[in-house]
């Protein structure tokens, strides 16, 4: 009887805890939307989204350069991160013996444990001066941010890609070999297509991390509110805009930062939703 009682109460407690996690998410979303949405309607959606003038003190709130900044930096990090992660994943899952994999994979996953401020620090101290000296510009740039973020998202994409490559049944590979395919033909014609949705899910999760990253980005992008003309330009991302100015903002300025948060939230929600669909499709296939 006693046992049954405790069984039930634990179940109830767990349910409450699980729902409180959802409640926290709901609270955050509702709070940001309540603070930010009225502002967006006051300024006008198109002025807010598509104007390039960001002078909160003068009452000009256009976040277009920041939206472009976020997208460009994220795209850049994908260009750096995806080839590295994918080739690493293929190498580790298809070519490396199991014992070596047991050493290499956890090591790469350690990268995910390095605090972002450390990445930013390395970006400012090492990468930015190199870019400034060899390529010109202020050094604090899209290029620097792309490289730093590319390394930061590497472990996410890599480990999910390895898992989905490993999940491809051995019979696919045997089948391909039996048809006379070489090792590489087997990988890119049989294994990769089968693992595709898992890899895409990993990429989208990495994308989410890149677009949401703040500390490292503030440190290495230079935060200029400008539409960039080359990867050597300094830009400001949506996250950096909020973090930079939150401490000092009051009144309309403060609301405009919440509104920036609403836009960021929408972008990230769309990404997460896409990731969920991609993952579900993979599970559905099995």
């Amino acid at each position: 009887m006693m046992k049954l009682f405790s069984e039930k109460s634990i179940k109830k407690a767990l349910t409450v805890i699980a729902f409180s996690a959802i409640a926290a998410l709901l609270l955050i979303v509702v709070f940001i939307i309540l603070e930010g949405l009225p502002f967006i309607f006051k300024v006008g959606i198109s002025d807010f989204l598509f104007s390039s003038e960001w002078e909160p003190q003068m009452g000009r709130f256009g976040i277009f350069p920041m939206i472009i900044g976020s997208l460009v930096v994220t795209l850049g990090s994908m260009i750096v991160g995806i080839p590295l992660a994918l080739s690493g994943a293929i190498f580790l899952s298809e070519f490396v013996p199991r014992w070596a994999m047991r050493i290499i994979k956890p090591t790469i996953e350690l990268l995910a444990g390095i605090p972002s401020v450390v990445y930013g620090f390395i970006g400012v101290m090492v990468l930015a001066p190199l870019i400034r000296d060899y390529l010109g510009g202020p050094g604090l740039s899209i290029l620097a941010a792309s490289i730093i973020l590319g390394i930061m998202i590497l472990p996410t994409i890599l480990s999910i890609s390895i898992d989905s490559l490993k999940a491809v049944p051995q019979s696919y590979r045997e089948g391909a070999f039996a048809l006379g395919a070489t090792h590489w033909q087997t990988i890119h014609m049989a294994v990769l297509p089968a693992a595709k949705s898992g890899i895409i899910a990993g990429i989208i999760l990495g994308l989410g991390r890149a677009i949401g990253e703040t500390m490292a980005v503030i440190m290495v992008t230079g935060n200029a509110v400008i539409l960039p003309k080359s990867p050597l330009y300094s830009v400001r991302t949506l996250t950096a805009n909020i973090a930079l100015e939150m401490g000092y903002a009051t009144g309309m300025h403060r609301q405009s930062l919440f509104a920036t948060g609403v836009i960021l939230l929408i972008i990230i929600m769309v990404l997460n939703y896409t990731a969920t669909i991609a993952i579900r499709r993979r599970v559905g296939k099995k």
Binding site: V124, M125, P138, N223, A224, S234, G247
Partner: peptide
């Protein structure tokens, strides 16, 4: 000017200038 690099504290401004000969 729009190209200006923006830093969020006295300390980071100082660090940026210390690292950039043209700043």
């Amino acid at each position: 000017k729009k190209e200006a690099v923006v830093q969020d504290s006295n300390g980071t401004v100082r660090e940026t200038v210390a690292n950039d000969a043209n700043a």
